[in-house]
Design a protein around this nucleic acid. Structure first.
Lengths: 218, 218
DNA sequence: AAGATAAGTTATCGTTGATAAGTTATCAAT
DNA sequence: ATTGATAACTTATCAACGATAACTTATCTT
């Protein structure tokens, strides 16, 4: 005996209005992914929340993975904008890196589920696993470039820092990787083991940034 | 048309010899988990490799997760031993921390699936997600305590470092957390995005350790 | 009114993890 | 040597999953 659908059936869209259904699906998928995670969110549950049959989702997305990719783009767009704002408004390159780190960590902690899905999704399909690191040379219209864009801005910041005369202990790419890995380590730990008796969050974030900055510049 | 089993059927175990079958299952599961990852390894494939029917696995393990937990214990046991060896043989406390970091990173990169399951398992059942941070007060015979033991040794090392007269910028717990987060960041990144054009692995590991050590000691 | 087609539906497939219920081999005690 | 208990299995089956094929229905254009 199947559980009866709790959702009100949604009326059929008029011609040319399919894209609104697409957005409804995306919204429902986002809610469910955030409520229950990727695996626990089934095609059928998404369809049920939208008020439509399961195969209808395949009219708008090639598969489950494509929905996730679209959501990643959406969420990361906000972070990309924020980082761009920092780059424009903060003149001191070192300060810029610090503010990037704080914004990044704050973003991760404020969107733990999206963060997990993009940067910690260990059982996602390959194309989703690769979301965070598609290079700028890839087609920018392809879904999933948000993570790569954010990272590339960090590389740019560190290049600018080096160009401003500050001596780095490693090439800018390596510095960016180490910087990102350090911050990511903090965010990942706090997100994944929220019940562990960690030290104060702010202390850890500021502490890691201090460590990284001190360790990267000569 | 089902794919015919390629495995030779294994003969029934004699009475009291069930534990050997349990070990056979664990061995096959380990091979398959490492070959194809957790999700791609199905109960049926494990059973097929052992030469036994799928439900037979449930005579020895409550579910798929329990097999992975048993393997995690097995694998993390080696790391625990290695860390204990370092503590015994390396006299200089700072050197001890460095060697811990290198051993930890090497372990993670050599056992990416176990590492992911213990420290990055965001979609695992709750009992597996909590594997890494069960405290020493928990029942030590329960599966999955390896991660907590390893972390507690790092705290001990940093306490020893402080006791030896070295001034730390944070309390030993916080230092251990930051140190672990840094190394974990490196390992997690390399494991999760293996196709990204990262800098040299050794450079990143040594670099992160340099950064952390330099940043933690006054 | 009629054809084209966007926007759905129902029925179904193969696969998954897991369980129920029955079977067979082995051992201990009579 | 037979019997009873039980360890060590098997076969049959379940519900849920992602996905597809094939069919229907509503809407727009001409």
């Amino acid at each position: 005996m199947a559980v009866p659908s709790t959702a009100v059936a949604s009326s059929r869209k008029k011609r040319g209005e399919g894209h609104t259904r697409r957005e409804e699906i995306l919204q429902a998928a986002k809610e469910l992914f955030l409520e229950a995670g990727y695996d626990a969110t089934t095609i059928r549950r998404i369809a049920d929340r939208v008020g439509v049959s399961a195969p209808a989702l395949y009219l708008y997305f090639h598969d489950k993975e494509a929905m996730m990719l679209a959501l990643c783009d959406q969420t990361f767009g906000h972070l990309v904008e924020h980082v761009a704002f920092i780059e424009k408004t903060v003149s001191d390159p070192l300060d810029c890196v610090r503010q990037f780190g704080e914004a990044y960590a704050r973003f991760g902690l404020e969107h733990p589920d999206e963060y997990r899905l993009v940067f910690m999704g260990n059982n996602m399909p390959e194309s989703v696993r690769k979301v965070g690191h598609r290079m700028a040379t890839d087609d920018p219209t392809r879904p999933g470039v948000g993570g790569a864009i954010v990272f590339s801005r960090l590389v740019a910041m560190l290049s600018r820092l080096e160009a401003s005369g500050v001596k780095l202990n490693y090439p800018p790419d390596t510095c960016a990787e180490l910087c990102w890995m350090g911050i990511h380590g903090v965010v990942a730990a706090l997100i994944m083991k929220p019940d562990f008796p960690w030290s104060n969050r702010e202390t850890l974030i500021k502490g890691m940034l201090d460590i990284v900055v001190k360790g990267l510049v000569r």
